[in-house]
Simulated scan of single mutants.
Amino acid sequence: MRILHTSDWHIGRTFHGHSTLDALRGVLDALIAQVREHDVDVVLVAGDVFDSAAPAADCYTLLSDTLRGLRDAGAHVIVTSGNHDSAARLGFQAALLRDGIHVLTDPLAVGTPITVADEHGPVHIYGIPFLEPALLRHVWPGIRTQEAALTHAMDLVRADLSARCAGARSVAVAHCFAAGVEPTPLLERDIQQGGLDVVPIAAFDGVDYAALGHIHGRQQLAPHIRYAGAPLHYSFGEGDKPRGSWLVDLDADGLADVTWLPLPVPRRVVTLTAPLEELLADPRFADAEDAWVCAEYTDDLPQRDPLRRLQARFAHCAKVVHAPARVGVSDSRTYAERVRAARSDRELVDAFLVHVRDGAGATDRERELIDDVLADRVRVEATA
Rank of each mutant, 00 (worst) to 15 (best):
D65S: 12
R89T: 05
G26W: 11
A149H: 09
G194P: 06
V258T: 08
A109L: 11
D160F: 06
Y335K: 12
S19W: 08
H5K: 08
I215Q: 07
Y209G: 00
H322D: 01
L28A: 06
V373L: 11
L301S: 08
Q93D: 15
V49F: 09
R379P: 00
Q220P: 14
T151G: 03
A274N: 03
L136F: 00
G359Q: 04
L301M: 11
A323N: 09
D345S: 15
H233T: 04
Q93A: 15
R144N: 06
I78Q: 00
C59P: 12
E147M: 12
A172I: 03
A73H: 06
R25A: 12
D287N: 14
R367A: 06
V248C: 03
G195A: 03
V265R: 11
D41A: 08
V77Y: 05
L263Q: 11
D287Y: 10
D350A: 14
A281S: 13
V198Q: 12
H124V: 05
L196K: 12
E381I: 14
T66L: 00
R268Q: 13
E238L: 08
T20R: 14
S170C: 08
Q219R: 05
D300C: 04
H84R: 14
S64M: 10
L369V: 14
H16D: 04
F177D: 02
R89W: 01
T259R: 14
T115K: 10
V327F: 01
H10M: 10
V171A: 08
E289M: 10
F285A: 05
A88G: 07
S7H: 10
V339I: 12
G206E: 00
T14K: 15
F352G: 02
V181E: 09
D287P: 02
C294G: 04
G180T: 02
T298K: 08
E182Q: 15
V173L: 12
S235M: 07
A351M: 01
I143D: 00
E381V: 14
C176M: 09
V42D: 07
L4Q: 04
A325G: 15
R333C: 02
I78L: 02
A341T: 00
M1R: 08
H102R: 10
Q93K: 15
H76Y: 08
I3H: 09
A56S: 13
T6M: 11
I370V: 09
P183Y: 11
Y227M: 06
D39H: 15
D345Q: 10
P55H: 01
D106N: 15
R13N: 05
V293E: 09
A75M: 05
E132P: 06
M154R: 01
P283S: 07
R158Y: 00
L374P: 02
E238N: 07
S86C: 02
R365Q: 12
I215C: 06
A163G: 12
R2T: 07
G229A: 08
T151H: 03
T334E: 09
T80S: 05
L156P: 05
V354H: 13
